[in-house]
Design a protein around this nucleic acid. Structure first.
Lengths: 169, 169
DNA sequence: CGATGTGTTCAGTAAATTTTGAACATTATG
DNA sequence: CATAATGTTCAAAATTTACTGAACACATCG
């Protein structure tokens, strides 16, 4: 399951499998694999970990680890824990799916939706300048796109409501 | 807006913008950009196009075009049109968001969900073999994962219902 | 049958993305 | 203040992914 002796020493088979699960999730969500690994090691850990803990157990570089933690912080998938008398930052995995999903939606998806909206306005403007025999037909296609956009926009918040309706948020 | 003289001759500014919109959508859905381009040119075209029509207007290779059309067919984003007296296959963009979304869900998302489910079962088995002092704590984490999986599984069909509820399906 | 039209496959190449690691910034410690 | 501890940044390297184009398969045509 693990690829080499070194990782066998650092991660149990169980930990490896859980991390692999999050690596695949990261892949679906279009995030670097290291982000999945880091979330995974934090999720399965019984106590908060610092950058170096993650780096060493996952056998990845400092740069990747720093970058990965930054991404996970950016949409609230992990929380910082203060440990008295220690200069390092410690992290735990956020375990509320609702919080993670809504952070992900607003940080990683909403910008795409917004820029799609802008582009659609630009397209509508371009069409209004046109004056050819296809104008009516094109206009109907753009109506369709605007319709899709509206439905996608309404669906996103509903997804979050549904995901957030579990027993533990 | 278009990158070079060649594409200016082949695509109007309006077409270019519409295609760019679908290229970005493809990016969000983790599909190759060429898939977005091909869907875009079919979407905006007033009549069915064959492989070579797409290839020439988009200035991409035969291989990419063939592959892209195959992917779009695989989840029902395009339909084939029979044109009497012509040996070539012609295509039109499917315009029902409901159909596209449900095809995408069952072909591109469901397999991930299923393999995630399998892996989670394997993880549960591994844990059952364990017998250490952390077992209870780990078991609770796996409960949480199973809970997430259940909620994600229930949410997917609801998304499709919501997306399918527009005026034109 | 050979020639032509159409579409697929896949090995090699190109492009995009991710990771690394060393240099740097910043803050704490003695 | 010098040194050490911690974390960030970013150019270069490694890896992954997508694209190309030539070879191929298959059908149709003359």
């Amino acid at each position: 399951m693990n690829d080499n002796i070194q990782s066998r020493q650092l991660l149990s088979e169980l930990e490896g499998e859980v991390i692999a699960l999050f690596v695949r999730m990261a892949d679906v969500l279009n995030l670097p694999r290291s982000v999945g690994e880091i979330y995974g090691i934090l999720f399965i850990s019984s106590h908060p970990l610092c950058l170096d803990d993650c780096r060493i157990r996952l056998n990845i570089s400092k740069g990747s680890t720093s970058q990965g933690l930054k991404i996970l912080r950016s949409f609230g998938a992990i929380r910082t824990v203060y440990i008295p008398g220690d200069r390092k930052d410690y992290y735990v995995a956020e375990s509320s799916l609702r919080k993670i999903a809504s952070g992900f939606a607003s940080e990683q998806i909403q910008p795409h939706v917004a820029s799609g909206h802008e582009r659609l306005e630009r397209i509508r403007d371009l069409l209004d300048q046109h004056d050819d025999e296809q104008k009516k037909e094109l206009s109907e296609k753009i109506d369709l796109l605007e319709n899709w956009q509206r439905r996608a926009g309404k669906t996103l918040p509903l997804i979050l409501k549904l995901i957030g309706s579990g027993r533990d948020g």
